[in-house]
Design a protein around this nucleic acid. Structure first.
Lengths: 191, 191
DNA sequence: TAAATGCCTTAATCTAGATTAAGAAATTAT
DNA sequence: ATAATTTCTTAATCTAGATTAAGGCATTTA
């Protein structure tokens, strides 16, 4: 839980007793490469912090193709916020790209914490704000930038992860075909 | 402020004294048709609730074209959440489509309320959650559905507003050209 | 009530990126 | 190591929707 503790302390001003109460509601779990930790139709019951590892969130579009919506690694939260918040079935799958250890909290326990430890209300607000900001930036890029620029943006932000993820997943994250990504990379390399 | 009070009471459980403190930080304002209430480059300092009227948020893309990202009417919040939260310059413009009256709160006053009235922390968390959920749904549709289906979805959700908004704004909201929307509507009418 | 401006439609042409197909390279399993 | 499978590349063809252009309709302004 060391990483999670660091993360909590960095995000909010928190005293030791509150910290202890919060941590008591989290449980640690490990997953192994190629596992699916949740999938389409299941309601997302946990909010998950990645201590270390690599995984991705994707959905199957109306042409039966995988579209990657998030790639997550150490020190980030991952999951289907929509399903978690509304407690409706998820549109998404999550699969493990590299062995991963997480700390997770159940929806019910989180609600309890909101009542019990008011600072948690703030913590979660800040997390949702962050998620919103990222999603808005991503949506704006998707609408506004051609494929090659979106790829450069991806490299800038996820350069350290790029070699660990198959290209076809990156392509689907950028919302282009793998063939087209191949072309884009070649044309950028030439310059 | 009647609509705002209703809205607060519907969202959270709130006592009269907290309500009074919260309302004291809001101010009412009116805007008239065709005004711009904020624009590109300005940092968004207010969180705004629409009591009544009609307005839209849009940005200018890299081909100098307007892309509508939100259309707002009575009982909704409107603005650039990204700019408001990060206090960085906004990418967006907001213009008034019909005379509008709003209630707004300044970022600083909101922060004060977070300290002073803990329930406000929850209220705002719920608002950001809602915004996230809408944005995620919209992003998913944008990726996954063809133009005609996005238009039908728009009608289902905003049917009551449709006749009040020029078609070219609807087209830009759907991320298609006005010409194409014209074609889509014709082909749907035929059926 | 006419002129000006803004908005909408139709049709022809164009384009970014998709799709299909097939071989090459890399990874994983035996 | 070798076979099997997965991933990546290249090139030809295709397509949803963009762009351009021009005429018609509707609303605002004088």
């Amino acid at each position: 839980m060391k990483k999670l503790i660091e993360h909590l302390k960095k995000t909010i001003d928190i005293n030791d007793s509150d910290l202890e109460i919060i941590l008591s509601k989290f449980q640690s779990k490990s997953f192994y490469k190629n596992e699916e930790i949740t999938s389409f139709g299941k309601t997302s019951k946990y909010f998950r912090f990645i201590n270390h590892g690599l995984l991705r969130v994707y959905f199957i579009d109306n042409q039966a193709k995988e579209i990657t919506v998030q790639i997550g690694t150490e020190n980030t939260w991952i999951g289907d916020i929509h399903s978690f918040l509304t407690q409706t079935p998820s549109q998404y799958h999550i699969n493990i790209l590299e062995d991963t250890s997480i700390s997770q909290i159940h929806k019910t326990d989180l609600e309890t914490l909101f009542q019990q430890v008011p600072i948690m209300e703030r913590f979660f607000r800040l997390k949702v704000q962050r998620a919103y900001i990222s999603l808005q930036e991503r949506t704006l890029h998707q609408l506004n930038k051609p494929a090659a620029q979106r790829y450069l943006e991806f490299k800038r932000k996820y350069g350290h992860i790029e070699p660990r993820v198959p290209q076809y997943m990156i392509a689907s994250y950028l919302n282009i075909s793998p063939e087209h990504l191949s072309k884009v990379r070649r044309s950028l390399a030439k310059k």
